[in-house]
């Protein structure tokens, strides 16, 4: 697969690790359509769709004079699509679409291009809270409709339903302490 040609054709597209493509939100549908229909790629089989959560992080850097500066780097949510080509027998190519940050989570849906993304984008919406614009039926899929959290996010707080264990240790001990109060 000649990714270099694609990078030239769509100037907004980047490749961070040389293997996967990061698509800007506004170009995502256009590039995806090209990947599916271009005879060189023909990536017609969208095998895997998933979300990944990158939380906000604070990066500390030391300046030359020894003073420390900490910079907050905003996190984002990412959807990764793994594409294969049945006709050209090639793949996988991973494409990534990122949200602006972790509160503004609107990205274009690629379900109109690959039907396979339908249920999997619903799953990413349910578990990560990524809003896919243009998805035909964006509802919760694994959790119930009234559920409000997004459990696969890294900062998800579980409900406190600790169950007695005779020998709690590590994280479970912490949980037990929290559940029963400091004892």
């Amino acid at each position: 697969m000649n990714i270099a040609r694609l990078l030239k054709q769509f100037p907004g597209v980047r490749s961070e690790d040389g293997a996967s493509l990061v698509l800007p939100r506004e170009l995502a549908l256009q590039v995806a359509e090209c990947l599916k229909n271009d005879p060189e790629f023909k990536l017609d089989y969208c095998s895997n769709v998933t979300g990944v959560d990158y939380p906000d992080r604070i990066e500390k850097s030391k300046a030359a004079d020894g003073s420390e500066t900490s910079k907050k780097i905003p996190g984002f949510l990412e959807t990764v699509y793994h594409l294969y080509s049945i006709e050209n027998k090639q793949g996988p190519l991973a494409i990534r679409v990122r949200t602006a940050d972790r509160t503004n989570t609107r990205v274009p849906s690629l379900t109109p291009i690959w039907r396979a993304a339908e249920l999997q984008e619903r799953e990413a919406y349910d578990l990560f809270g990524i809003h896919y614009i243009g998805h035909p039926d964006l509802r919760r899929i694994l959790m119930w409709d009234d559920f409000e959290d997004h459990p696969m996010r890294k900062d998800y707080q579980e409900p406190d339903d600790y169950h007695y264990e005779p020998t709690p240790h590590d994280e479970v001990l912490e949980k037990a302490r929290k559940h029963y109060g400091a004892a």
């Binding site: 017609d44 089989y45 969208c46 095998s47 049945i86 690959w114 039907r115 396979a116 339908e118």
Partner: peptide, 20 residues
């Protein structure tokens, strides 16, 4: 065509005639 588009796999894909 629909089987490929919806990423069917395994025996269901091959039953639709896709050699994969």
């Amino acid at each position: 065509a629909l089987a490929i588009d919806s990423a069917m796999s395994g025996p269901c894909l091959r039953a639709s005639g896709v050699n994969y």
